[in-house]
Structure formats: C-alpha cells, structure tokens
C-alpha cells in the first residue's frame, strides 16, 4: 500500500512563470477556454483568474503596492487541496469522487453526471464543470502518472521547486525546516493545511504563506459542508412540526364546530 502523497507549495520561491499551468493543461489534455480567444483580465498579469474544470492549476498573482517604490508580488500556484476530510467526496451522490491508494481525491469522469453538488461543497472553489465532458473536474494529482511511478506534471515542470511532490510525512518535515529558516531571517512564514489535527484533517496539498490566508484567496477555517446538517435538519423538523400542529388544530376545531360542542366558534 503506497503512503499518502501530495504537494508542498512554497510560495516564497514561486516566480509566476506558469509552467505548472501549462504542464497540467498539456498532460491532462485540457481544452482552451473560448476556443483559445481569451479576454485579458486587464488589471493583473493573472489572466487565468481561477481554478475550474479546465484549469486545474492556477498561479495566483497578489499585487500589494502602497506606492511606486513600496510593494511586493505574492505568487501562489493554487490547486486542489486533496483534503483528508474532503467535502466534495462527502456529498457526491453518484460515488464518482473517490479516495485513491495515494490518499488523493479523484473525480471519475465516467461516473459523474454533472449535478454540481461538489462545486458548492468545496470550501476552496476548486471544482467546476468541464464544458467538453459535461462533468465536474479538478486536479487528479496526476493519478495516471503516480500509478506508473512518475511525479505529477506540474511539480515536474516547476523550475524553482516551489511545488514539491512527495510523501506527506516527508513534505511536512521539509516544510517545517523551511519555515524555521525563513523565520530566522525575519520573514513571517506560516504553513497552511499542514497540521493533521487542523482543519479538514489536514490538506494533502499544503502551503507556505507569508501573509494571511485570505490574501491568497484561502478560507481561514475551511469546514465540511455536513457541519450544518444536524442543525438545519432539526430546525426544518421543528418548522414542520409547528405547521403540522397548526393544520391539525384547524381541523380539530372544525370537527368541534360540526359537533357543536364546547369551544365551537367560527374561526374560519
């Protein structure tokens, strides 16, 4: 049985070259958007803008400029987090989303029927419909490459090793060393998703960030969608009970009216 595998993305060494985006598109034969005629964002070098069904890697450009000489670019290659407790897998009604032997989360395109429950369930906005297949799609962590002992296309292509692939245990050790190194240099570095006791049981694709998670478009405390199930169901049952009693009381009163018994009086 293979051990859990994943990505550690060190955002401090990402140079925004988008080699990962290209490698992902090429290996997974993902189609171009709008026939290749793409509108530029106009306010950023980031023209991909988001992860979706045909963009399984996205290099996020965060431009923090206070003035002409005071600013920085933060860059982060974003991807499916392959959550240990995955919301998409939890709600998928067809069983199309599975956990693989590498502890990664994969959507089986031949099973998915495009109901889109997983899109709304993912706290990171990773999944979307691929218009060619009509099914929900996202990063598979190159399951086909892993099966034959190759590393995923994106990390293979990354020229700065910002995206590192490996066993989760080893990656966590490596990531902590890097955080310690940066902190010793006075950089405020934190790991996001590396804690197996943290949100969603840890993310098998975790990050080293130098600013707040929200700045990178990441939720501070991602949660499973079923957190609302018990409360929402209870309130619905309570509402149904109140309406049921109201309906029954109305009818009982009518019967008493018919019988002309005590309490008779026209409420209707």
């Amino acid at each position: 049985m293979p051990e859990p595998m994943g990505f550690f993305t060190d955002t401090t060494v990402c140079i925004g070259c988008k080699a990962c985006e290209v490698a992902c598109k090429e290996w997974n034969q993902l189609p171009a958007e709008n026939g290749g005629i793409r509108e530029l964002s106009g306010d950023s070098y980031d023209n991909t803008r988001r992860l979706d069904g045909i963009h399984w890697r996205h290099v996020r450009f965060i431009e923090q400029f206070k003035g002409p000489y005071d600013g920085r670019w933060l860059m982060m290659s974003d991807v499916c987090k392959h959550c240990v407790q995955a919301g998409c897998l939890e709600v998928c009604p067809t069983g199309a989303i599975i956990r693989t032997e590498f502890d990664t989360v994969v959507i089986q395109s031949d099973v998915c029927n495009g109901c889109r429950a997983c899109i709304a369930a993912c706290p990171f906005g990773v999944i979307d419909i691929n218009p060619v297949s009509g099914t929900a799609q996202k990063c598979t962590l190159c399951y086909d490459r892993l099966k034959v002992g190759l590393e995923p296309a994106c990390s293979k292509a990354c020229p700065t090793d910002s995206i590192q692939f490996g066993s989760i245990v080893e990656l966590r050790t490596r990531a902590q060393k890097r955080v310690d190194q940066l902190k010793s240099q006075g950089v405020k570095a934190e790991l996001y998703g590396a804690d197996p006791n943290g949100a969603l049981g840890g993310l098998n694709s975790f990050y080293l960030l130098v600013d707040q998670p929200e700045v990178y478009g990441l939720p501070r405390n991602p949660q499973l969608p079923t957190r609302n199930l018990a409360k929402s169901s209870s309130f619905s049952l309570a509402s149904a009970a109140v309406l049921g009693v109201l309906a029954l009381v109305g009818l009982r009163k009518r019967r008493m009216d018919d019988m002309g018994g005590p309490g008779a009086g026209g409420s209707n």
């Binding site: 988001r50 889109r116 899109i119 706290p123 939720p219």
Partner: peptide, 13 residues
C-alpha cells in the same frame, strides 16, 4: 469575512 466567500458557484440557476 465568512469563509463561505471562497467557494465556487455551482451554477444552479
């Protein structure tokens, strides 16, 4: 900001 603002819309229309 609620963490829900980082999710994607499912196109339920």
């Amino acid at each position: 900001m609620s963490d829900t603002f980082f999710s994607g819309a499912p196109h339920w229309a």
